[in-house]
Every structure is written in structure tokens, then in C-alpha cells.
């Protein structure tokens, strides 16, 4: 096993082209920062509860947890608005929760209930919330990269000056659909940002065992595209680099790859015994925890007291527990639902 690079606090680590200087991302208000912290903490607690629920047999099928990667979804989302479309792969709980899915319907989906966010028809891997421009939740590795291209294409076609953030794991960089999408994005000048959530493992296959170039942002070189590698445990650093690329996409219709170096604490899915990495490695990364980093930053800024943060966290814990219980008390879908939502 190769030693994995730990975060240094540098933010941007490398680029294939000089990054344009659009200055600093607009300051977030105290309330907005707290909102993002709350969503990151909520995601963490939601996933911890999901872990327990899976262990006790409440969740069937696959379940991929986001613990350790929270600053990726939060930092990128905080750089754009809820009017900008986003789409991701199957590790999608965070993207759903941070784009308006309430934890109740989110749990209910995991438990296969009628009150689930997609009525018990999609499960863990297929959260959607189109009201907030969250377009899934997709199970085939890399398949969503072409869809993200199309969402961005549509915003440009309609002259909306939006940007689409399309998320994928590091394992998806080897899929053909991704490479076709990169070429089309650069060729047609489509405002899509491909966020590679590089948690260093494609299931159990470490990056150096699945990708010829281990620096995944360099895939952009083959398409004359902007590629950026950045650290991703710090919400503010992620937000800044995301904002720069989003501005470039809006102003110049230019796509990019944003490789965010992150780490997942749990296995690939719930059925992963993790023979491929050491406990020490996981513990090293836990020392650079994205939720703790933002918590510490907010406290050091002195705008919020520890007491207030404790209160906020207690509220979230309560909300997660109540949502879990509400979901468990929800009915299963009627048999007739098998045949609805097939055709429009």
C-alpha cells in the first residue's frame, strides 16, 4: 500500500493551465456559514444513523456513505446557487441533503417506504430533488458524466448563464462516457465542471492500481482543458477554487476538471471489509476532519459561541433521530406503485 498524501492546507495543489483571477469568492454571511456547517454536520449524523440502520438490517441493497467527504459537496455547492444544476453518482446522500431533501424522506427512501424522496423506487443510490436542481443519484459508474454535460448544454442553449457541477468518484475516470464527455465539453464550450471526488479508492482498488496517471486532473490535458487538483477537507478552500471555476464557466462557457483530494472513513459500501487499507491510514485522515475544521474556523472567527454550536448540533441530532423514527413508521408503497412513473 502506498502512503496517501495528507492535507497540507495549501488548497490548490496543481493546474493544467493558469487559473484566471476572479478575486475572492463573495463573503458568506454568518447565517450562511452556519447553514453550511449545519448541513455538513447533518450529513455526518445522517450517515452515522444510516450505518447503524444498515447493520441492523433496516436498509437493503447498496449503501455508500459520505463520512469524511462532506467539504466536497458543501464547499462546491456553496460556490454556486440552488439554480445551478448538479448531478452525481451513487454516493449521493450528501448532495441530496444539501440540495433540500429533508432527512425524513431521505431515511424513508433508504427504508423503501412510500414517503421516500423517490417513493421507494430508487433507493440509496438514486436521490433526486429537481425543485432544487439536484438531478440524481446515478448507479452506473461514469454514466452521469454525459448527463451532466447535457444539463450544462441545456442551460447554455437557453442562455441562462448557469454552470452544472457534475460529481464522480475517482474510479469513474476510466469510463468511456467520461472521456467522450470531456471532449464534447471542451469542443462545444459547455459550462460543466467535473468534480472528481478522489477518495483514493475505486471500491477496493487504490488509484495507483486503477489509473495510469495517478494525478487525475491531468486527464484534462488530453482535451486541452483546465484541470485543477485541490485539497478538499477545508470547506473554505474548496469553495474558493469552485467559485473561480464556476465564474470561468459562466463568463466563458469553459468546462474544467476539479480533482478534489478527499477521503472516506467508511468502506466503499456497507459490505466492504476494507482489506485494502490499514486502520492507521484511516486514523491519520480522521485528524483532518472536514466537519471539525469548519467548526474550529467558525469558533475562531468569534461570531458564534461554542454554546450556540452545541445547541445547533443537538438540534440536528434530534432531527436525525426523529426523521429516522418517522421514516420507520411510514408505510411501504402500494403494489399499484410498481406500474406508475414508467411513462410521462
Amino acid at each position: 500500500m502506498t502512503q496517501k498524501p495528507l492535507p497540507t492546507g495549501a488548497g490548490v495543489l496543481a493546474t493544467t493551465q493558469p487559473l484566471p483571477d476572479y478575486g475572492k469568492a463573495p463573503e458568506l454571511s454568518r447565517e450562511e456559514r452556519l447553514r453550511w456547517y449545519r448541513l455538513m454536520f447533518l450529513t455526518r449524523k445522517f450517515e452515522e444513523r444510516s450505518y447503524q440502520s444498515y447493520q441492523t438490517g433496516l436498509i437493503g441493497g447498496f449503501c455508500h456513505l459520505y463520512n469524511g467527504q462532506e467539504a466536497v459537496a458543501a464547499g462546491t455547492f456553496a460556490a454556486i446557487t440552488d439554480a445551478d444544476p448538479v448531478i452525481t453518482a451513487y454516493r449521493d446522500h450528501a448532495h441530496g441533503l444539501m440540495r433540500g431533501i429533508r432527512p425524513g424522506p431521505a431515511f424513508a427512501e433508504l427504508y423503501g417506504r412510500a414517503t421516500g424522496v423517490v417513493k421507494g423506487k430508487g433507493g440509496s443510490m438514486h436521490y433526486f430533488n429537481v425543485d432544487k436542481q439536484m438531478y440524481g443519484g446515478h448507479g452506473i459508474v461514469g454514466g452521469q458524466t454525459a448527463l451532466g454535460l447535457g444539463l450544462a448544454f441545456a442551460t447554455k442553449y437557453l442562455g441562462e448563464k448557469k454552470v452544472c457541477f457534475c460529481y464522480m468518484g475517482d474510479g469513474a475516470v476510466n469510463q468511456g462516457a467520461f472521456h467522450e464527455s470531456l471532449n464534447l465539453a471542451q469542443l462545444m464550450k459547455i459550462p460543466v465542471i467535473y468534480v472528481i471526488e478522489n477518495n483514493m479508492y475505486s471500491m477496493g482498488t487504490a488509484v495507483e492500481r486503477h489509473s495510469a496517471p495517478v494525478e487525475l486532473y491531468k486527464r484534462a490535458l488530453g482535451y486541452d482543458m483546465m484541470g485543477v487538483r485541490a485539497e478538499a477537507q477545508d470547506f473554505d478552500l474548496v469553495r474558493q477554487v469552485s467559485w473561480t471555476l464556476a465564474e470561468r464557466a459562466r463568463k466563458e462557457n469553459m468546462p474544467a476538471i476539479l480533482e478534489l483530494m478527499t477521503y472516506r472513513y467508511r468502506g466503499h459500501s456497507m459490505s466492504d471489509p476494507q482489506y485494502y487499507r490499514s486502520k492507521d491510514e484511516v486514523e491519520e485522515y480522521r485528524k483532518h476532519d472536514p466537519v471539525e475544521i469548519l467548526r474550529g474556523r467558525i469558533l475562531s472567527e468569534g461570531t458564534v459561541s461554542e454554546k450556540d454550536l452545541d445547541k445547533l448540533e443537538d438540534e440536528v441530532r434530534k432531527e436525525v433521530q426523529e426523521s429516522h423514527e418517522w421514516a420507520l413508521a411510514s408505510p411501504y408503497p402500494a403494489q399499484s406503485e410498481i406500474y406508475t412513473d414508467i411513462y410521462a
Binding site: 454525459a146 447535457g150 467522450e180
Partner: peptide, 21 residues
């Protein structure tokens, strides 16, 4: 005109349809 990338341009079109085109 698309390059010869059936998965790419078919997927692009599906994504565009998801958005309402």
C-alpha cells in the same frame, strides 16, 4: 454535428431532455 461519440452525444441529449429541452 457531433464527433463520433455515441455514448457522449446520446447522454448529452438525455441530460438536456432532463432539463426540459
Amino acid at each position: 454535428d457531433s464527433p463520433i461519440s455515441e455514448a457522449g452525444f446520446a447522454g448529452l441529449a438525455i441530460g438536456a431532455a432532463m432539463y426540459g429541452l
